[in-house]
């Protein structure tokens, strides 16, 4: 079953188009990875799914209902949560408060969900009362992902979750993403660690100049010589 779908999106930030007909799809239970060169519009495509970009034409649907121009608080309400590439925590808020903000629209008792996030990322439990801005890059990324998990989303959008992390943390974050996926959360992520990410992916897209260049299963993209030479560094 297809959960989230973008069809031929064109648009950008008010100037020229950054997206030139990109189409994406995330089915239930999948891990989908987007790779591509810097400035290809990967982040912009993610933002477009979340209603943060002026989409001039094309449409975004979630479970066949159009969400193209919905505000973010409506979109999170449907179960799509997003971790941006940069500035993805509230630095002066504590770890716990960051998680609470992720649950802002929930009016029920979400303490079980907080415990689940702490189980996934044990360091956060110790540092729950510490300001997120004082944490290491890896721990900040845990806070960012934890915040986005607070609504128990159906689809989690991750924009370069391992960027700037040490190899130890890269492996850990990828592991956790797989665990999250195993609990039934579909994942769409942009990744610079392309080989690693594609090796975990059910499907992948190669994005160039705001449009799909290649689209295939993870293993097939890894095996594709052209893709490997041009986008995966040989």
């Amino acid at each position: 079953m297809t959960l989230l779908k973008a069809e031929e999106l064109y648009g950008g930030y008010g100037g020229g188009d950054i997206l030139n007909g990109v189409s994406l799809r995330v089915d239930a239970g999948e891990v989908v990875v987007i790779v591509g060169p810097n400035g290809a519009g990967k982040s912009t495509a993610m933002k477009a799914l979340f209603g943060l970009v002026n989409v001039r034409s094309g449409r975004v649907t979630f479970r066949d209902e159009e969400i193209t121009r919905l505000s973010p608080d409506r979109i999170v309400g449907r179960g799509v949560c997003y971790v941006p590439q940069e500035a993805n925590v509230f630095p002066s808020l504590t770890v716990l408060e960051n998680l609470e903000m992720g649950a802002f629209i929930r009016r029920d008792d979400y303490s079980a969900q907080i415990e689940r996030v702490f189980e996934l990322f044990p360091p956060l439990k110790e540092k729950r009362s510490q300001a997120a801005g004082t944490l290491s890059g890896g721990q900040r990324q845990m806070v960012a992902i934890g915040r986005a998990l607070m609504l128990d989303p159906k689809v989690l959008l991750l924009d370069e979750p391992t960027a700037g992390l040490s190899p130890k943390f890269i492996d850990l974050i990828f592991e956790r993403i797989q665990e999250i996926n195993a609990t039934g959360v579909s994942i769409l992520m942009v990744e610079q660690n392309a080989r690693h990410a594609l090796s975990l992916a059910d499907r992948g897209y190669v994005l160039v100049l705001g449009a799909n260049r290649y689209e295939d299963t993870g293993p097939n993209l890894l095996a594709n010589r052209e893709v490997a030479e041009m986008f995966l560094g040989g």
Binding site: F50, L52, S71, P72, D73, V76, G77, Y82, P84, A87, N88, V89, F90, P91, S92, L93, E97, E100, M101, G102, F104, I105, R147, L151
Partner: peptide, 21 residues
């Protein structure tokens, strides 16, 4: 809840919106 949301928005308005605040 809203007091924390206020501090959150002061920290990072875009992320506040994304979080559904």
């Amino acid at each position: 809840r809203f007091g924390k949301a206020m501090r959150a928005m002061s920290d990072n308005p875009d992320l506040a919106r994304l979080s559904g605040i």
